[in-house]
Design a protein around this nucleic acid. Structure first.
Lengths: 250, 250
DNA sequence: CGGATAGTTGAGTTATCTCAAATGCAGTGG
DNA sequence: CCACTGCATTTGAGATAACTCAACTATCCG
């Protein structure tokens, strides 16, 4: 069984085994692999791995209410899903990392209210929704994949609601940082408590429901007391226990 | 095909047809009906409609981390699902109305972090999870039911995050009221802009991320300017357009 | 009637926002 | 290489939405 993501070099895991690429690491299963396998078993044509797309930084790649017959999975780079309403207010609902999709519900619904845009330059893979839904009927591993995503997303948005509704500003920001750290770590993208950190302060603000100005003040304070270090678009956690304490880990 | 919910009188729709009970109205499909049908087609035993349970007001009926082989669907009364963390802070994630379950993800996961408790006295129906998952494999209407729930929940929690992160206090409260009104209306539980309203102010506070005191002040202001009227645990919207305007309907 | 829970009101505090100006930094075109 | 433009970050001062605390009243239920 092939699983080399040949067209998306940056998600190469080196090996060609399942579980080796970033998408697999993130989800425990890669849609490519699943579709691949299905096709192989049927003796069908070479697997439709999904088409690869690239987009520069700061581009909108999916609009609210927009119909699409495709499901996109991020392969490389950072993106975000947000809800924008009246008077230009926006709330970021999720920072998308390699292996993520805008929302698992998108595998069934052709439209959503979410706006998806890139943060860095990204590579993503588009699958035809129809190809996937056929698979859902037939493959138990794909169904498991789905329910796992559902459960994970539920937990993430519950936690988000809690933080936004009940957290102080410093809790929210530290929670965001820790959350990203955990998710990147699962993908093998953290070394020495250090991670790539392409977020602008206004991203952090929109994700935490705060003001860019206030985010700035919080971050400088975090730095001053030796919690974190930011330089060169990368972030290091210097005092993990303290940061967790602020985030109010239950 | 029977569909009379015989043991849960208050969700009687009068007729015995699908679409007639509150659960059907809420979801477009009732689990009872689906399981019923499946069993009937197989010539199996009389359908396992799920066992009926009752609980008085203000009782916890499902705890975080608690394992359960059952999935509960509310038949009558109000309940809530919340996330409680450190120092007793709580965020209500969803007000549960007849036809709702704590979370659709609960149909696959035996545990969650949510605390579910009753607001009024409630009747609910418990289905064995195993009975449902078997159905998912076989019945396309049940799968559709599932994906609809997923999509709806996604939209609800996106909106919640937006309100908590980016809404002023008056927007949040009016949004909550309108949301409840809409959902109750779908269930045929609104007459003349009037609905049953068993929420205490501290419920509203926990749902909107505010303080009970502040909620009180907002509600009295809403009443003074003639937006709503509350009496006898029921709420009437007197000026719908104005309330929508405050809620910031997009 | 008494005790608990819920709602109301006012006074004072504080976390966060708004506004505004200054600085830094990256990319562009001359 | 420099000046320039546009974005991101920093800093300070003042405003305000929402909170805390505390006392008082109303309502419900046995």
């Amino acid at each position: 069984m092939k699983h080399d993501h040949a067209d998306a070099p940056s998600i190469f895991g080196g090996a060609a085994e399942p579980g080796s690429c970033t998408i697999c690491k993130a989800n425990g299963l890669c849609l490519c692999a699943v579709i691949n396998k299905r096709e192989a078993e049927r003796g069908g044509p070479e697997a439709p791995l999904g088409t690869v797309h690239k987009s520069p930084a700061r581009r909108k790649i999916s609009y609210p209410k927009e119909q699409s017959e495709f499901v996109s999975v991020l392969c490389d780079g950072w993106a975000l899903a947000s809800l924008c309403l009246s008077n230009g207010r926006r709330q970021i609902l999720s920072i998308l990392l390699p292996g993520d999709m805008s929302s698992g519900a998108g595998m069934f619904e052709a439209t959503s209210d979410r706006l998806v845009e890139t943060i860095t330059e990204v590579t993503y893979r588009r699958y035809r929704r129809r190809d996937l839904t056929v698979g859902f009927l037939e493959r138990s591993d794909l169904r498991q994949f789905l329910t796992k995503i559902w459960v994970d997303e539920r937990q993430q948005s519950d936690r988000l609601a809690f933080d936004l509704g009940r957290g102080m500003s410093d809790e929210r920001v530290s929670q965001l940082i820790l959350n990203l750290m955990t998710r990147l770590d699962k993908r093998g993208m953290v070394q020495n408590q250090t991670m790539e950190f392409p977020l602008r302060q206004h991203h952090i603000a929109d994700a935490t429901g705060l003001t860019p100005v206030h985010v700035c003040k919080l971050l400088t304070e975090f730095r001053q007391v030796g919690l974190i270090e930011i330089s060169n678009r990368s972030l290091t956690i210097l005092d993990l226990p303290a940061l967790r304490r602020i985030a109010g880990v239950a």
